[in-house]
């Protein structure tokens, strides 16, 4: 059944520049998908700032406590590097990968 749920997941494609100005829109995008399975596509990310990491982690935690699937699709080198720099690489393991 899980495969079926995941196939219906909405894809949220992260912008390439996740800076100060991207945090509020990102929160709004996640907010609009609340309650539905989400697959985060990070394959275009060039730059990940701490504010957007906050939104991403908060969303992950919210989806988890809602019991709704939350997964990570493609990741770019820029995204992975951003996670590393911010001490958050564990997300690559703790968020289910698709």
């Amino acid at each position: 059944m899980q495969a079926a749920t995941e196939s219906q997941a909405e894809t949220l494609k992260l912008r390439s520049v996740l800076d100060l100005t991207a945090a509020a829109p990102l929160k709004a995008e996640f907010g609009a998908l609340r309650g539905r399975p989400v697959r985060v596509d990070a394959s275009d990310v060039d730059r990940l700032g701490a504010l957007c990491l906050q939104v991403l982690m908060s969303a992950h935690s919210t989806w988890t406590s809602d019991g709704v699937p939350f997964s990570l699709g493609g990741t770019s080198p820029g995204f992975e590097e951003g996670l590393d720099t911010l001490g958050a690489s564990f997300l690559l393991f703790s968020i289910p990968r698709e």
């Binding site: 100060l20 945090a23 509020a24 990102l26 929160k27 996640f30 907010g31 609340r34 701490a50 504010l51 990491l53 906050q54 939104v55 982690m57 908060s58 969303a59 935690s61 919210t62 406590s65 720099t85 911010l86 001490g87 958050a88």
Partner: peptide, 21 residues
């Protein structure tokens, strides 16, 4: 580098430009 996200709220309480991490 160790990240401390213990002050991070759930999404609906999150102020996008506040500092939690």
């Amino acid at each position: 580098i160790t990240l401390d996200a213990s002050s991070l709220p759930q999404l609906d309480e999150l102020e996008p430009e506040a500092a939690y991490l």
